[in-house]
């Protein structure tokens, strides 16, 4: 005899407990979740959206009254500025080009970064996002040291100190909970960060550092200049 319902188990990514749903034969296979508290979209969300938008427009308008968009001399292919800079969001890349050969800095690394971003949600390794040090502490430690060692060596080989520094600082933070065990506070919080968190935070740090260097600290011949010596 066939049952008139199926039992399905589902694990919602956001909440820890496993939910069990009884799905009747003819209804859509969907797990309803009514545990979160709901509010009416109007006015609760709509009003906030309007306020946020208006504040943003006001800030933009004030900024536009104070600071003028730059306009230099008419384009002149004969006259190359030194340094020639792309807009700020590409200066991290331009900084990479300074260290690596063009194929690596201009093509492979950015392509890898975009690909890495795309595949993030398809890593099913640690969907509950458990802390890095939760299990296999010793193996984790060894893997981490080896991995960071190799990455740092390669970076040192190309003299990319701008990436070595954030890498080592991050590793320092990563290792702190391994050596100093705490139940509460900052170190305990660090200990609960999953690997994905560390990788992303490292990525963001590198992007910010490289972009900042390219924007504020690079002058003629892409040489190091301090911001007070002029921003190019």
């Amino acid at each position: 005899m066939s049952k008139d319902f199926n039992v399905e188990q589902t694990r919602d990514a956001k909440q820890v407990p496993t939910r069990i749903a009884f799905i009747k034969g003819r209804t859509a296979a969907r797990v309803r979740k009514e545990d979160a508290e709901m509010v009416m979209t109007f006015p609760n969300l709509v009003v906030k959206e309007i306020i946020a938008f208006e504040v943003m427009v006001i800030l933009l308008a004030v900024l536009s009254l104070i600071i003028d968009a730059p306009l230099e001399w008419i384009a002149n292919p004969e006259h190359t500025p030194n340094p020639a800079k792309a807009p700020w969001y590409f200066l991290g890349l331009q900084e990479l080009l300074h260290y690596f050969p063009p194929v690596v800095g201009g093509v492979i690394l950015p392509a890898l970064a975009v690909m890495a971003l795309i595949v993030i949600p398809y890593f099913k390794i640690n969907i509950k996002r458990e802390g890095l040090w939760k299990e296999h502490r010793r193996e984790t430690f060894l893997t981490l040291v080896v991995a960071v060692g190799i990455v740092s060596l390669v970076l040192l080989l190309f003299k990319v100190y701008a990436m070595v520094m954030p890498t080592l600082i991050m590793t320092g933070f990563m290792l702190t909970p391994y050596f100093i065990k705490r139940e509460h506070g900052f170190i305990a919080w660090l200990g609960h960060r999953p690997l994905s968190w560390w990788v992303m935070t490292w990525f963001v740090m590198v992007v910010v550092v490289l972009t900042a260097i390219g924007t504020l600290f690079r002058g003629p011949e892409w040489g190091w200049t301090w911001p007070w010596e002029g921003i190019y």
Binding site: P70, L71, E72, W73, I74, A75, L93, L97, V103
Partner: peptide, 22 residues
Amino acid sequence: LPWDQLAFWGISVGTNMARAVP
């Protein structure tokens, strides 16, 4: 689009980057 030095050289730098694709 403004066709000033900033524009011209900003785009030249970027499109030169694209040239590095093997």
